[in-house]
Design a protein around this nucleic acid. Structure first.
Lengths: 143, 143
DNA sequence: TATTGTTATACTCTATAACTATA
DNA sequence: TATAGTTATAGAGTATAACAATA
């Protein structure tokens, strides 16, 4: 009779939980998971296709279609880079910034709620350990 | 100047990390993410299409194709249920059990390694909190 | 009538390989 | 030559709607 799950099992189940939440809130904002991830990556700054594909862990050719569809929907625009004419910068439109803002706020609220039931000390310890584990992970979601 | 990430941000980044690991190990075992998830869900017991789709959070029609491809690859088989002739039970083959075993062991090892650097007390607390947060999450990955 | 599963269809996501334009 | 990006193509994954068989 075990009273605690192993770390691996817990991590996978937590991921499953967060992924489902991510998808659910995305649907509510009319964003697919891939689109939401891309918009989040562009929140801080515009990125070229190569940088964006590296951040998201996608092939450049896969990103082309993703940006195509997002551009078609008015969420991002492509712009040339005068300092290197090979580069195409991807930038959020006002609509894209709006959508990702809504998505970000809702997801943050739901995730905060997930840990809100924990006793304060336990919650703080957990959050601190979390921060330690994800050092080096690309900023796919900021505070 | 913040020295700690928020809980929401930490959770999303951890998810990103685990997902990438999941996909990477899946590739090594010649399994897609969706296939690996399905095989994991079948590890304990055979399931009917409806139960399996509920566990995975997929539409039944989506599952049909997923099972088709896995069956075609010899990872699972469909079997009738004598007690309810509407039901189709999905069961791992020997090859499927083998693949998911390999996948499970490798993923577990990598995830254990992820938390192995933490001080023992911190690791135990983290794992315990993890278990608390995922109560109710379907058994998509067992110990 | 309700439930189980499939089919038909359409779209998104992703990769590999071959290509163009610029550095 | 090397890098940035696109196109062509193929396959996996997913959903919605309509259907057939069984309960």
């Amino acid at each position: 009779m075990k009273e605690t799950l192993g770390a691996a099992s817990g991590l996978v189940r937590l991921t499953f939980l967060v992924q489902n939440l991510y998808a659910e809130i995305g649907r509510g904002c009319d964003l697919t998971v891939a689109q939401a991830q891309m918009l989040c990556a562009l929140t801080e700054d515009s990125l070229g296709m190569a940088d964006l594909s590296a951040t998201l862990g996608l092939e450049r050719s896969s990103l082309t279609g993703l940006v195509d569809r997002a551009e078609h929907r008015g969420l991002v625009v492509r712009e040339g880079d005068p300092s290197d004419r090979r580069v195409v910068k991807v930038t959020l439109t006002a609509a894209g910034a709006d959508a990702v803002h809504k998505f970000h706020d809702q997801l943050t609220e739901r995730l905060e709620k997930l840990v809100a039931d924990l006793p304060a000390t336990e919650r703080e310890r957990f959050t601190r350990t979390l921060g330690r584990l994800v050092t080096g992970v690309p900023a796919v979601f900021a505070d």
